[in-house]
């Protein structure tokens, strides 16, 4: 070994540049650099994400009003209260309906839009831009402008319904119509993002694959189901995870349009966390709801990952 190195030296071949090697001799120097580079970000994550996560777990065992100096230890009391509270079933129902409608509806509509925008149509570039535009707008502004669209007396929705001889539903005061209203607005704002991601994926589907299928006599629908959809698998998984996360976090639209009402018709669990923590002041109870929701979120994500391992072929 050593003779080989000597031989090389004699032959005038220099050893490879040392910097990468030198680092091993002084690992602490590299470690220190790592801490300088990554430390601030990690510190912020610990202070504002992970520590609060544990704190929230602790708060969930307290009977405590936000801003109050005293708190009483109640163990699992908040959890028992939540599971036995008569409004809980309703809030869970609203959360499930809202989530399924916005995530499922968003993916179906988004995929349909993407397929449409992927056709060779004139003006599809402009159409794509228009479809995505609401996604970059403030949720509050979107909620407020749609509140006027849905105004049962003076909005365009009422005007369109009147034109076909129908009366406008009472979007503002009927809990079920109100829930439909916030779902529609959420979809309007976010469907463009789903369409955009699907469109990017569709453009990677090899055209000769579809041509071969057509030559084999496959109908376009059949080819779509058997070739395109499986190829979109990873994208569908990515969208399922990300849109679920953002749907569960939706707050702006609900706050601007209904504040969780009427009769808690649009109170999702996420909205309940805000309401109990900052409106009714039950911070301990709110933390318990937050903990439950976080556990559910982790479970759902975990199941999605497992499913994807089995079903999606990269």
């Amino acid at each position: 070994m050593s003779t080989m190195v000597e031989n090389r030296r004699q032959m005038g071949i220099t050893a490879p540049p040392p910097p990468l090697r030198r680092r091993r001799r002084w690992p602490w120097k590299s470690w220190l650099l790592f801490l300088l580079f990554a430390g601030p970000n990690v510190a912020l994550l610990i202070v504002f994400t992970y520590k609060p996560l544990l704190q929230s777990l602790y708060y969930s065992t307290l009977q405590w009003n936000i801003g109050s100096a005293t708190a009483r230890q109640v163990g699992l009391g908040n959890y028992i209260d939540w599971f036995t509270d008569p409004t809980t079933a309703h809030v869970v129902m609203v959360t499930v309906v809202f989530t399924i409608a916005t995530v499922g509806g968003g993916m179906v509509l988004g995929l349909a839009l993407a397929v449409l925008l992927n056709r060779r149509l004139r003006g599809r570039g402009a159409a794509r831009t228009v479809v995505v535009a609401p996604y970059v707008l403030s949720g509050v502004a979107v909620g407020l402008l749609w509140l006027f669209v849905f105004d049962p007396n003076f909005g365009i929705c009422a005007a369109l319904l009147r034109a076909v001889g129908l009366a406008s539903p009472d979007w503002y005061n009927d809990p079920q119509w109100a829930l439909l209203m916030v779902i529609v607005v959420y979809l309007w704002k976010n469907v463009g993002y789903v369409a955009l991601v699907y469109l990017a994926a569709l453009q990677t589907v090899p055209a000769d694959l579809l041509e071969a299928a057509a030559l084999d006599g496959a109908t376009p629908f059949h080819a779509f189901r058997r070739i395109v959809l499986p190829l979109l698998g990873p994208t569908t998984f990515f969208l399922a995870v990300t849109t679920l996360l953002s749907s569960l976090q939706s707050f702006d639209i609900i706050q601007a349009m209904t504040q969780g009402g009427p009769l808690e018709g649009t109170t999702t669990m996420m909205y309940q966390i805000y309401q109990e923590g900052f409106q009714t002041g039950r911070a301990g109870y709110s933390s318990a709801v937050a903990t439950i929701l976080f556990v559910v979120l982790l479970l759902v994500t975990f199941v999605q990952m497992k499913y994807v391992e089995k079903r999606v072929h990269y």
């Binding site: 590299s30 990554a38 707050f251 966390i273 805000y274």
Partner: peptide, 26 residues
């Protein structure tokens, strides 16, 4: 750069994407 718990640090960073803001507002 080199660091003994590099993978862990990166995991910690990315896992934060799964923690919704509302969970930690209080």
């Amino acid at each position: 750069l080199e660091f003994p718990f590099k993978k862990f640090i990166f995991g910690l960073t990315v896992f934060a994407l799964l923690v919704p803001q509302q969970i930690v507002i209080i």
